[in-house]
Computed example of a mutant assay.
Amino acid sequence: MTARSCPCGLPGAYGDCCGRYHSGTAAAPTAEALMRSRYCAFVKGDVAYLLRTWHPRTRPGTLEPDPRMRWTGLEILQTSDGTAFHTTGTVEFRASYRGGSLHERSRFERVDGAWVYVDGEFLP
């Protein structure tokens, strides 16, 4: 990954990829795109975006990511639904960090037309 590439793992610059979702100039069109942008927000420490894209039903009151956490990569393992033709979707992913990885199956729903993160199940 170059200094200008997007941390989500897709080719292209951050501003043309997840940066436009973070800034609010565009909305993630699929559950996978939202998952990638949320991973990127964890990398960048963008707590406001993480809370804004969390389902109101499951959103925590506050979020304090560990500033020592160093995310090193994202691998999308499987997606189900989550396109423009769906109201729900799931994304299974592995997010690597210095010293380990997190494997999760996340659930997403549309709220007022926008994809939001509902919750996730940690997998071995």
Rank of each mutant, 00 (worst) to 15 (best):
A3N: 10
S5N: 12
P7F: 13
P7K: 10
G9L: 13
P11K: 06
G12F: 11
A13S: 12
A13D: 09
G15A: 15
G15T: 07
G19M: 11
R20L: 03
Y21L: 01
G24R: 04
T25W: 09
A26I: 03
A27G: 08
A28Y: 00
A31C: 12
A31L: 14
A33V: 07
A33K: 08
L34C: 06
M35A: 10
S37P: 01
R38A: 04
C40I: 05
C40R: 06
A41F: 09
F42E: 01
V47Y: 05
A48L: 15
R52D: 12
W54S: 06
H55V: 01
R59P: 00
R59Q: 06
P60T: 07
T62W: 08
T62D: 10
L63T: 05
E64H: 07
E64S: 12
P65S: 06
P67G: 07
P67A: 12
R70Q: 13
R70T: 10
G73Q: 11
E75H: 09
L77T: 08
T79W: 02
S80I: 10
S80H: 12
D81Y: 08
D81E: 14
D81L: 15
G82A: 03
G82Y: 04
A84R: 14
A84N: 09
V91N: 12
R94V: 14
A95C: 12
G99E: 09
L102I: 14
E104N: 07
R105K: 15
D112A: 15
W115T: 02
V116K: 03
Y117T: 01
Y117D: 05
D119F: 11
D119E: 13
G120K: 09
E121W: 00
E121N: 00
F122E: 11
L123N: 09
P124Y: 03
